[in-house]
């Protein structure tokens, strides 16, 4: 059985956000919820400043606090290392969200895709209401809904349960890459089996010294970051007093 992991090459990542948009489309992620997200940081004092950008997603930790804390095993591990959620068992206690060290789990505080539930058209008799538009294309919640997401998880989660990245388990099952990796125009996301020494993931981890988020708390996250883009030059110096 493989153990899936992802390497994110920060030298290649340009922060375009294509991963987040692709994820949103693939997984029917509602407004206000981010399976694929980012951490941005500005360091230094003007004019000596620098901007850092780290793409984030579920770390699919080996020792996942969300899995350990879930009272009903709604949050669980698959044999291939993916941290999976079963909304049918979720009681909405939000302990996984409270317990996640990486801030990648979100709660559906209201029924998702509210905009598309609206029955009012902008121009009565002239334009279709969002609800009518959804009906016309034969979808359930949104006109751009991806029904394939429904293979392993309800295509649209309901209010009162949490949701998060599943490494696109429905695609991986079919031998496809997670949508974020596929959509990345810079090939900054590399997905694969960390147990296979010949996988691209393993090769990259042998070539570059990776870092992981909040490694010190012992969750053994499986999102690895390598390199970092920095075109800056500076005059060689030994400093001074």
């Amino acid at each position: 059985m493989p153990r899936y992991a992802m390497v994110i090459d920060l030298q290649r990542c340009v922060g375009c956000g294509a991963c987040s948009i692709a994820c949103r489309n693939e997984n029917n992620v509602p407004e206000g919820i981010y399976w694929s997200n980012k951490i941005t940081e500005t360091v230094g004092t003007f004019p000596n400043v620098r901007y850092h950008y780290i793409p984030t997603l579920c770390n699919h930790c080996e020792y996942a606090p969300c899995v350990r804390g879930c009272p009903t095993q709604a949050m669980h591990k698959l044999d291939n290392g993916i941290t999976m959620h079963d909304p049918k068992k979720c009681i909405g206690c939000k302990y996984c969200e409270f317990n996640c060290p990486y801030g990648v789990i979100y709660f559906n505080w209201k029924a998702p895709h509210q905009f598309w539930r609206n029955k009012n058209s902008l121009l009565k008799g002239g334009t279709a209401s969002p609800r009518e538009e959804v009906k016309k294309v034969g979808a359930k919640k949104t006109p751009y809904e991806n029904p394939e997401r429904g293979a392993t998880l309800p295509a649209n989660r309901s209010k009162g349960v949490v949701e998060k990245c599943t490494f696109c388990d429905h695609r991986v099952k079919k031998g496809l890459l997670p949508r974020c990796a596929e959509a990345c125009p810079a090939n900054a996301r590399v997905f694969g089996d960390i147990k296979d020494p010949n996988s691209d993931v393993s090769k990259l981890l042998g070539k570059f010294r990776p870092f992981r988020l909040r490694e010190q708390i012992g969750t053994n996250p499986h999102i690895f970051y390598i390199r970092g883009f920095n075109p800056a030059q500076y005059k060689q110096t030994k400093g001074g007093i």
Binding site: Q73, A74, I91, G92
Partner: peptide, 15 residues
């Protein structure tokens, strides 16, 4: 709780 009806899994799927 977001979904109190799923509490049944406290018994059927305990962690």
């Amino acid at each position: 709780l977001g979904n109190v009806f799923h509490m049944i899994y406290i018994m059927f799927s305990p962690n």
